Amino acid sequence: MDLLLWRHAEAVDGTPDHSRALTERGHKQARAIAAWLHKNRPRKLRVLVSPSVRTIETARAFADDFEKIATLGPDGNVAGILSATGWPDGGDAVLVVGHQPTLGRLAALLLSGQEADWTVKKGALWWFTNRVRNGETQTVLRALIPHDLA
């Protein structure tokens, strides 16, 4: 299974938090990663998005067809993402457009076996895959693409 984690691009400051839109720079960041995804994406890719404005705007740079999942919101947690995606046994590839600190905590769990406060830069994409070697399931970081290198 492939699991792609995309942190929303730069958004305006303010409240309420769920209503914060992308800045012009944020739209540029989202378009850069979207262009990279169009060239490199897995064939079958399910897109799951937090219901916040900034994540929806980030996702729309890439696709119009996505599912809004409440548990992926700013107050979500790692268990919510794992449940929504079916990692690691879900089969098809899933792209999650979400928030810090949850995406960083999930990245830490996948690579180190423990949740930790790792940072996923705004607009960045982390691509994980899993495989079985010698009867052991392994998580592999396939790509880490910051928006400025896309």
Score class of each variant (00 low, 15 high):
residue 100 Q to F: 03
residue 115 E to S: 12
residue 123 G to S: 03
residue 138 Q to V: 13
residue 29 Q to G: 09
residue 106 L to H: 07
residue 103 L to N: 06
residue 58 T to I: 07
residue 42 P to E: 08
residue 71 T to E: 14
residue 51 P to E: 14
residue 71 T to A: 09
residue 75 D to P: 08
residue 40 N to R: 01
residue 56 I to L: 01
residue 94 V to D: 03
residue 73 G to S: 15
residue 139 T to R: 00
residue 83 S to D: 15
residue 41 R to K: 06
residue 71 T to P: 12
residue 32 A to M: 00
residue 115 E to H: 10
residue 42 P to Y: 04
residue 40 N to G: 04
residue 136 E to I: 05
residue 101 P to V: 10
residue 77 N to D: 14
residue 119 T to F: 13
residue 16 P to D: 01
residue 15 T to Q: 13
residue 88 P to D: 05
residue 14 G to R: 04
residue 34 A to M: 01
residue 86 G to Q: 10
residue 34 A to H: 01
residue 37 L to M: 03
residue 9 A to D: 07
residue 126 W to D: 04
residue 106 L to P: 00
residue 68 K to R: 12
residue 135 G to K: 15
residue 96 V to F: 03
residue 18 H to C: 14
residue 137 T to R: 15
residue 129 T to N: 10
residue 116 A to C: 12
residue 128 F to Q: 02
residue 76 G to N: 11
residue 30 A to R: 01
residue 15 T to F: 06
residue 37 L to W: 03
residue 136 E to F: 04
residue 52 S to R: 06
residue 23 T to N: 11
residue 69 I to W: 13
residue 89 D to H: 15
residue 120 V to Q: 03
residue 38 H to S: 07
residue 97 V to F: 06
residue 120 V to T: 01
residue 39 K to I: 02
residue 97 V to L: 03
residue 47 V to F: 06
residue 62 F to W: 05
residue 106 L to M: 09
residue 100 Q to M: 09
residue 122 K to N: 12
residue 10 E to Y: 10
residue 34 A to E: 00
residue 60 R to P: 10
residue 115 E to I: 14
residue 121 K to E: 05
residue 83 S to P: 08
residue 11 A to P: 13
residue 98 G to V: 00
residue 42 P to Q: 03
residue 125 L to I: 09
residue 24 E to F: 13
residue 87 W to C: 12
residue 107 A to G: 10
residue 94 V to W: 04
residue 94 V to E: 02
residue 64 D to G: 13
residue 65 D to Q: 14
residue 130 N to R: 09
residue 57 E to R: 08
residue 87 W to T: 11
residue 135 G to V: 14
residue 68 K to F: 06
residue 69 I to A: 11
residue 56 I to W: 02
residue 78 V to E: 02
residue 58 T to Q: 08
residue 35 A to H: 00
residue 123 G to C: 00
residue 106 L to C: 09
residue 135 G to W: 14
residue 116 A to P: 02
residue 84 A to W: 11
residue 111 L to H: 06
residue 110 L to Y: 02
residue 55 T to M: 10
residue 129 T to M: 09
residue 67 E to M: 09
residue 102 T to S: 04
residue 76 G to S: 09
residue 120 V to P: 00
residue 78 V to Q: 09
residue 44 K to Y: 11
residue 60 R to M: 08
residue 114 Q to L: 14
residue 59 A to Y: 05
residue 77 N to C: 07
residue 84 A to Y: 10
residue 36 W to K: 05
residue 140 V to S: 08
